[in-house]
Lab assay of single mutants.
Amino acid sequence: EPEARKIVEKLINNGLSPEDVKRWAEKNNNPEVKKAAEEYQKR
């Protein structure tokens, strides 16, 4: 999901860690963003 990846990169560029992004995604019920954050961590 390229859109989710863009969101993850934007949040990380704004100073969030991938863990923060995953928590944000869970709080906002956004499994695509959570998955993208996990993939981002593996890179």
Rank of each mutant, 00 (worst) to 15 (best):
N28F: 10
V8P: 00
K35D: 07
N28A: 08
K10G: 11
E3N: 11
N13C: 10
E1Y: 12
K22C: 07
V21Q: 02
Y40E: 03
G15D: 03
I7G: 01
E26D: 11
V21S: 01
P18A: 13
N30V: 10
R23S: 08
P2G: 15
E39Q: 09
W24E: 00
L11S: 01
S17I: 02
A37E: 01
R23A: 12
I12T: 02
K34P: 02
R5P: 06
N30P: 00
K10Y: 15
N29G: 11
P2N: 14
N14W: 14
E38A: 06
P31S: 09
R23G: 05
A36W: 12
G15S: 03
E39D: 10
E38T: 06
E1V: 11
E32V: 07
Q41G: 08
E38M: 09
E39G: 05
N29V: 04
N13D: 10
N14T: 10
E3W: 13
N13Q: 14
V21E: 01
E19I: 05
S17E: 04
A36I: 13
K6Q: 12
P18H: 06
A37S: 03
E32D: 12
P31A: 10
I12Q: 02
R23P: 00
N14E: 15
E19D: 11
G15P: 00
I7E: 04
K35F: 09
V8N: 01
N30A: 13
V21G: 00
A37F: 06
I12F: 08
A37H: 02
R23F: 06
K27E: 14
A25N: 00
V8L: 13
N30H: 13
P31W: 11
V21P: 00
E38V: 06
P2L: 15
L16T: 03
L11V: 00
N13S: 13
P31H: 09
E32N: 07
K6F: 09
K35E: 08
E39F: 06
K10F: 15
E3I: 07
E26C: 00
K35R: 13
E26H: 05
N14C: 08
K10S: 12
N28V: 08
K34A: 14
L16I: 06
N28T: 10
P18Y: 15
K34I: 13
E38Q: 06
E19V: 05
K6Y: 12
K6S: 11
P31C: 05
G15F: 02
I12H: 03
I12Y: 04
K42F: 10
N30E: 12
V21L: 04
S17Y: 03
K22N: 04
I12P: 00
K42Y: 10
P18L: 14
A36S: 05
V33C: 02
K27F: 09
P2E: 15
P31Y: 10
E38L: 08
S17V: 02
E9W: 11
K42I: 12
R43D: 12
E19A: 08
R5W: 15
Q41V: 11
G15E: 05
P2Y: 15
K10L: 14
R43L: 14
N14D: 14
E38W: 05
E32G: 10
I12K: 01
V8W: 05
E26N: 05
E26Q: 07
A36N: 02
V8A: 05
L11K: 01
I12R: 02
E39M: 08
E19M: 06
E3C: 09
I12V: 07
A37Q: 01
A25W: 01
A4Y: 08
Q41L: 13
P18C: 06
P2H: 15
K22H: 06
R5Q: 14
A36L: 12
N14H: 10
I7K: 03
W24I: 02
E3A: 10
P31F: 09
E39Y: 06
Y40R: 02
K6M: 12
V21A: 03
K22G: 06
P31V: 09
R43W: 14
A25R: 00
K10R: 13
G15A: 03
E38S: 05
E32I: 08
E3R: 07
L16E: 02
N28Y: 11
K42A: 13
K6G: 08
E3H: 08
N14V: 09
K35L: 10
N14F: 13
A4M: 04
K6T: 11
Q41M: 14
E39T: 06
G15V: 03
V33D: 01
P2I: 15
R5G: 10
N13G: 13
N14I: 13
P18W: 14
P31L: 10
K35H: 09
K35W: 09
R23W: 07
L16P: 00
D20W: 09
G15L: 04
E32K: 06
K6I: 11
P31D: 10
R23Q: 12
A37I: 12
K35Y: 08
A36M: 11
N28Q: 07
E9H: 08
P18N: 03
E39V: 06
L16M: 14
A36R: 03
V8K: 00
N29F: 07
E1K: 11
A4N: 03
L16G: 03
E38K: 04
P31M: 12
I12L: 11
N13F: 11
K34E: 07
K34M: 14
E32P: 07
I7L: 11
E26I: 11
N30K: 14
N28D: 03
I7S: 02
A37V: 13
Y40M: 07
I7R: 04
E3T: 10
S17D: 07
R5L: 14
E26T: 06
E9F: 08
E19C: 06
E26R: 02
S17F: 03
V21N: 00
E19G: 05
E1H: 10
K27L: 14
K42P: 06
E19H: 05
L11H: 03
R43Q: 14
V8F: 13
E38D: 09
R43E: 14
E32A: 14
Q41Y: 11
N29T: 04
V33N: 00
K22W: 09
V33R: 01
P2A: 15
W24D: 01
A36E: 08
E26M: 08
E3Y: 08
E39S: 06
K6E: 13
S17A: 05
